[in-house]
């Protein structure tokens, strides 16, 4: 229990317009896990992520951070990092200063900020690129910078919202392998929102298949943590099997979402 970074206990969200965004959701993320949220649109993935990012509060239920209620811990106490769909880098600043940004905003001094930025860049294979500018980088490299900017704060939990959706398949696969290494070798705990089934199958130790109307977790699917996530795994029978089983769950969740939507109208 002590290794539980984040736990959601019967968390609900009703929007001011009366729409139920989330039915009671229970979710636990343990240290070192890679948890994916996958599901049809409107299933509350983004709502869930915003609750965890504390961009809005739950209507009912409680969120706990290392076992203590969110409200008690405060924003500073939760070491969270974010990676969005776009790299959202500052075009006027070089890569090193982009990665240092969260440290600058937290008031870390320049020298140690620079050192930590270099370490974080090395972890995503961009140790040589600190002096370059975002405009000089490819889409994949920009996304790596964005990941380094998240790593530099040494977060307890990394939240990723469809981070590689805009990249080509080859780049996306490389970055997925990179993420797998960061999680399963370096112990980075990650909560990952994705549309892509094969990405969830490749990366996750736990997949939450969500359904919509209202948003809820339809099924939970665990994947052996000890699998080495590399190119060979992507071609293996095991990967195909996981993808098939997830596809069946996702299909059922989508079907239920449609039925629920028809019931409402």
């Amino acid at each position: 229990m002590s290794d539980t970074v984040l736990s959601l206990d019967a968390v609900e969200k009703v929007f001011p317009n009366g729409v139920r965004g989330l039915a009671p959701v229970d979710l636990t993320v343990r240290a070192g896990e890679f948890v994916s949220l996958i599901g049809p649109s409107g299933c509350g993935k983004s709502t869930l992520l915003k609750l965890i990012a504390n961009l809005h509060g739950p209507s009912a239920g409680s969120l706990r951070w290392w076992g203590s209620d969110f409200r008690g811990v405060g924003q500073k106490g939760r070491r969270l990092a974010f990676v969005f769909q776009d790299a959202t880098l500052m075009p006027w600043a070089n890569v090193g200063r982009n990665v240092r940004l969260p440290l600058d905003l937290m008031g870390v001094d320049r020298a140690s900020g620079d050192a930590r930025a270099r370490t974080a860049l090395a972890r995503v294979g961009l140790g040589h690129a600190a002096e370059r500018y975002p405009a000089q980088l490819s889409g994949g490299m920009r996304m790596r910078v964005s990941i380094a900017r998240a790593l530099v704060t040494e977060p307890d939990l990394l939240l990723m919202d469809e981070p590689f959706g805009a990249l080509d398949e080859f780049t996306r696969n490389r970055l997925d392998e990179e993420m797998a290494r960061l999680c399963y070798q370096d112990g980075l705990t990650t909560l990952f929102v994705t549309h892509a089934l094969h990405e969830a199958a490749f990366l996750s130790s736990n997949v939450m298949v969500m359904a919509a109307h209202p948003g809820r977790i339809h099924a939970r699917y665990a994947i052996d943590r000890t699998i080495v996530r590399d190119e060979a795994f992507r071609l293996s029978e095991r990967f195909a099997e996981i993808s098939r089983e997830l596809a069946v769950l996702l299909e059922a969740a989508s079907h239920e979402s449609h039925l629920a939507a028809e019931m409402q109208t």
Partner: peptide
């Protein structure tokens, strides 16, 4: 200002001055 970048500054609780000089002014350049 790029709204995503602005959201990022908010998540890290950037002060008004930080947001002005590190985000708004360079964005306006």
């Amino acid at each position: 200002v790029d709204p995503d970048l602005a959201a990022y500054f908010r998540m890290y609780k950037a002060s008004r001055l930080q947001t002005l000089f590190r985000l708004r002014v360079p964005s306006a350049l």
